[in-house]
């Protein structure tokens, strides 16, 4: 059986005295679309930032591609960061550069590819997310959905084996959101890329998720793990049931 690409063991996140979550433990298998879900303020994005090395865990460990990013320094840390891609909630595209130039930034910084090659790779990545004809446009000239797709193209610039997506569907209309979901599933299938997706959009979770964990603000940790469809239909946990059925908790 293939080694998990992400292994989280007893992870605790805290800011000063305030614990966001603790005892979070799960694995992400290669090639799957893994969803971190939960209500607002439960720590989904905080967990993602622990996985990509932006926040230090208060306790526990998070291994990505077999390495503890928090224990790595210098070149070793850079080498691991080159093997992960991140799409930010807002896209986080560089405003003064066109979409093609945005995708070329990691290629320029981390490879010795000549300009012709970088331009072609950027064109291929933008083509992959359906933005070929917008390559010359600036981030301020495109819609929110296009910015998210461009963010995915940039995250994929170095062909990382794992992509982390923070709220890819947030703020998008249902059609654009469904298009983005289809793109994630297609990329996971065609390129074998592993996706770790933070979202609270129910339809997206059910459309893309192979497996998921659910975080809860009250429980300060994980309250469910498994196939999202199975959790929706068979979970005993009232919070999980309320989440999937969009019910108001008593």
């Amino acid at each position: 059986m293939a080694e998990p690409v992400v292994q989280v063991r007893g992870l605790k996140a805290a800011f000063g005295d305030r614990t966001v979550f603790e005892n979070v433990t799960f694995d992400v298998k290669p090639g799957e679309v893994f969803v971190i879900l939960g209500g607002s303020g439960c720590g989904k994005s905080t967990l993602l930032k622990h996985l990509i090395g932006l926040y230090e865990p208060a306790a526990g460990q998070a291994l990505v591609l077999g390495q503890d990013i928090h224990a790595l320094q210098g070149d070793a840390r850079q080498a691991l960061l080159r093997r992960i891609g991140v799409m930010w909630q807002s896209g986080a595209l560089f405003g003064s550069q066109s979409l093609a130039e945005n995708v070329m930034v990691p290629l320029e910084q981390h490879t010795d590819l000549p300009f012709e090659a970088r331009a072609l790779v950027a064109r291929a990545k933008l083509g992959l997310v359906g933005l070929s004809d917008a390559a010359a446009r600036l981030p301020a000239e495109i819609s929110g959905g296009m910015a998210k797709r461009a963010g995915i193209a940039r995250a994929m610039a170095l062909d990382p084996p794992i992509l982390f997506l923070d709220e890819p569907s947030a703020g998008l209309d249902p059609i654009t959101s469904a298009g983005l979901d289809a793109l994630i599933v297609q990329l996971a299938r065609d390129l074998g890329t592993t996706f770790v997706v933070v979202t609270h959009e129910l339809q997206s979770i059910l459309a893309i998720g192979d497996r998921c964990i659910m975080l809860d603000k009250e429980a300060k940790g994980m309250i469910a793990e498994g196939d999202p469809r199975a959790l929706r239909d068979h979970s005993d946990n009232p919070t999980v049931r309320a989440f999937f059925r969009r019910e108001v908790m008593a």
């Binding site: 064109r123 291929a124 990545k125 933008l126 070929s132 010359a136 446009r137 390129l191 074998g192």
Partner: peptide, 22 residues
């Protein structure tokens, strides 16, 4: 194996419409 699929996917991505000329 998967190489042909990757080549086809990349060929398709590269054949998208070019940005309109300024």
């Amino acid at each position: 194996g998967p190489m042909q699929a990757l080549l086809d996917r990349t060929r398709q991505a590269l054949s998208g419409p070019r940005p309109p000329a300024g």
